[in-house]
Amino acid sequence: MNGDDLALLASLRAGDAAALEALMRRYSSRMYRLAYGITRNQADAEEVVQDVFVTIVRKGQTFEGRAALGSWIYRVTTNAALNKRRGKRLELETSLEEHLPGFDADGHREGDRAWVLADWSATPEHELLAGEARAVLHRALDALPGHYRAVLVLRDVEELSNEQVAQIVGESVASVKSRLHRARMALREQLTRQLGSKA
């Protein structure tokens, strides 16, 4: 474990409020990003972050000798967020399969020429993160299964390696890679449906 983290946990055990604040400064932003990315709901994300910190405050002593506090935090935050989501908002999740590209027998992408050539990538990001494109992106993120969103945030926002993410979500590296790729393809398909004709 990071020496700083160990020292902070030791101070926290002694009831040191400054240590708690330092741990919050270090970890609360990424916990919130991850929890929000998975739950897609502010109130749920807040509860997740709070619960994980309460565990740290109450059980600080059990971390000694464990792997990095950072990975532990990612792991329990992911699990708590996935649990929070279970049974909620599932109605929004659609099958990913219908948003994956189709191929013909020769391995060419299915669709007419305008569709397979659609390239909206030159559109500036600020335009794509506003208006209807933003709405499409957020609907598409909402519709992804929670496990896919967890991988998307851990890889593409937190920029962890496939191996680190595999440890955090408790899946194989192959499964992490597959989820990441399928999530990106499903989002791309839905964005292209909205933007393709305008590029």
């Binding site: 929000y36 593409d156 926002v157």
Partner: peptide
């Protein structure tokens, strides 16, 4: 571009 956009949208 999709990868970058999704990351930007998730950077809350």
């Amino acid at each position: 571009k999709t990868r970058d956009l999704a990351a930007a949208a998730n950077r809350v």
